[in-house]
């Protein structure tokens, strides 16, 4: 019964976006993320590509699409850093998968829900990232958890407004 309800919800609420939007929005988010910290150094506390991954994953409600989106965006982010490729790829594909799975079960149009899922998935992304760095790559890097929590809070607040902007590029039925 529960499965059939989820399937019905998925059929009813699944969002469809033009291909141009699906390609350009993640690229634009990565571009802005790479460009703005040059002028505003503190901007790097935001993670716009992660917010785009969450937005598309919960909108599509398709775990496979969410996984692919997260992996591709994460790999492009990794390519711009000095770290090995795959760290952000792994963390964001897990986030994309879970966000899509969650989108099937709950209403993600509500701002309060968006605030919570953005906070939870940003924190999850950080935890997975640090797990890979410390335990899989054996890189002894310092971690400031207060900074990471602040980062998650800021991302969740900005994410509410960012999702509202992205809603406007969605074609209306």
């Amino acid at each position: 019964m529960a499965i059939s309800a989820s399937a019905a919800r998925r059929e009813l609420d699944v969002q469809r976006y033009p291909l141009l939007v699906v390609v350009l929005v993640p690229l634009l988010a990565i571009f802005v993320q790479a460009l703005i910290p040059r002028f505003v150094p503190r901007f790097d506390i935001l993670d716009l590509p992660l917010l785009v991954t969450i937005y598309f994953a919960v909108g599509w409600r398709n775990p496979i699409a969410g996984t692919v989106t997260g992996a591709v965006i994460g790999l492009i982010q990794d390519a711009l850093t000095s770290r090995p490729l795959g760290i952000n790829g792994i963390s964001q594909c897990v986030v994309g998968f879970l966000a899509a799975s969650l989108g099937v079960k709950i209403d993600v149009e509500n701002p309060g829900t968006r605030l919570l899922i953005n906070f939870a998935f940003t924190l999850l992304n950080i935890v997975i990232y640090l797990f890979i760095m410390h335990h899989m790559l054996a890189q002894n890097l310092g971690t400031n958890w207060l900074h990471e929590v602040i980062k998650a809070v800021i991302n969740s607040i900005v994410g509410v407004f960012f999702f509202d902007i992205l809603d406007r590029v969605r074609p209306r039925d």
């Binding site: 990565i30 790479a34 040059r38 790097d44 590509p49 711009l80």
Partner: peptide, 14 residues
């Protein structure tokens, strides 16, 4: 300088 890595986990410039 034309860009950055865009993340505070990797301090990189282009």
């Amino acid at each position: 300088v034309i860009g950055t890595s865009g993340t505070d986990q990797s301090r990189v410039l282009y």
